[in-house]
């Protein structure tokens, strides 16, 4: 893996405004890098800010109450937060593209597949309609669709969930993106179809050398796909580590709890260790460490002062007082 940075996120803060003055902070000053050619996993439970992070990177918060209020996102030398709309449009869907959780609702239901795909391709390349159509068919073939010509003529409702997700991937990959953001790409799919799609994403990443930011809540998917992992909790990064390190030697109590609470095929346990309580509400975050109310190691300090994200090992960062004192 080369260590050349493709995307640099620095102090990103995204807030959602319910009125001019009141807002909740969904993503709280997070920083991370994505290197060229790697699959970076972004894990966390619902409401931890992982999807908002991806939408912030893609600049897709325009028509929502959400707004990036701080930080920079540098992609391939361009600061996306300062770029003009035209520049963003050029990058989005071109050098950087995205696949979503719900393949069915991310495709336009009233447009045939060929039209949707050609539109994207022609926006970013100088291909003629004919060439774009051929390219679209080629892409569909690449993602394992047996009869591309027929699928091109179909409407989205005529395709199954697995098929539509393949179309989404083909569409996202059609302009050779350098970065693919996949937000829970297999969560809506069945296990056997999930296996097909994950296999396909790995193959494409290897062949095209693109980087993938894989957002998921499924630790099994992370272990299988990613080289590095970022764990988020309540809008903040709590741990970042290479995948083997994260699973063999998790340092943050939340990561430890999360890994322990997932049943593992073949482990033979009857009762799982579980994390007590539930994720705090974004509008009323606990003082101090955000995980402290659920943490069995929490001390007085944890409840009053917030720890920083510090380096705790090779390529490993962790936000916990316990790891900063000894």
């Amino acid at each position: 893996m080369s260590q050349e940075v493709l995307l640099k996120v620095k102090d990103l803060r995204t807030e959602f405004f319910s009125s001019k003055k009141s807002s909740v902070t969904a993503v709280h000053n997070i920083s991370f890098d994505i290197y060229k050619g790697e699959i970076l996993g972004l894990v966390g439970e619902s409401g931890c800010g992982k999807s908002v992070t991806s939408l912030s990177i893609m600049q897709l918060l325009k028509d929502t109450p959400g707004k990036v209020t701080n930080g920079e996102i540098v992609f391939d030398g361009v600061d996306l937060l300062k770029a003009s709309d035209a520049e963003i449009r050029d990058i989005r869907g071109g050098k950087m593209s995205m696949i979503f959780q719900e393949p069915m609702s991310s495709l336009n239901p009233s447009m045939r597949i060929d039209k949707q795909m050609i539109e994207g391709i022609r926006l970013h390349t100088k291909m003629s309609k004919e060439e774009a159509r051929n390219h679209a068919a080629e892409m569909l073939k690449k993602v394992g669709i047996p009869d591309p010509q027929r699928v091109l003529k179909n409407y989205p409702h005529q395709l199954s969930g697995g098929m539509s997700q393949r179309v989404m991937i083909a569409m996202a990959m059609s302009c050779d993106p350098k970065l693919l953001i996949a937000d829970e790409p297999t969560t809506a799919l069945d296990v056997t179809i999930q296996a097909q799609i994950l296999d396909l994403m790995k193959k494409i990443q290897k062949e095209e050398g693109s980087s993938i930011l894989l957002i998921t809540h499924d630790l099994g998917v992370v272990a299988e796909m990613c080289s590095r992992v970022i764990v988020m909790y309540a809008g903040k990064i709590v741990e970042e580590a290479p995948v083997e390190v994260l699973f063999n030697n998790p340092t943050h109590p939340y990561t430890q709890g999360l890994i322990a609470s997932v049943p593992k095929l073949g482990s033979g346990v009857k009762v799982l260790p579980s994390i007590p309580g539930s994720v705090p509400d974004l509008a009323s975050m606990p003082q101090g460490c955000r995980f402290a109310p659920r943490c069995k190691y929490a001390t007085e300090k944890c409840r009053t002062q917030e720890p920083d994200l510090v380096v705790v090992g090779e390529n490993q960062r962790c936000r916990c007082w316990l790891k900063q004192e000894g």
Partner: peptide, 22 residues
């Protein structure tokens, strides 16, 4: 079906049976 389940352990290598079609 069993082989398709992702295992939360990066060191675990297994043979996966990928089913064709839907």
């Amino acid at each position: 079906l069993l082989s398709a389940v992702p295992i939360p352990d990066p060191n675990y290598k297994k043979e996966r049976i990928i089913l064709e079609g839907d």
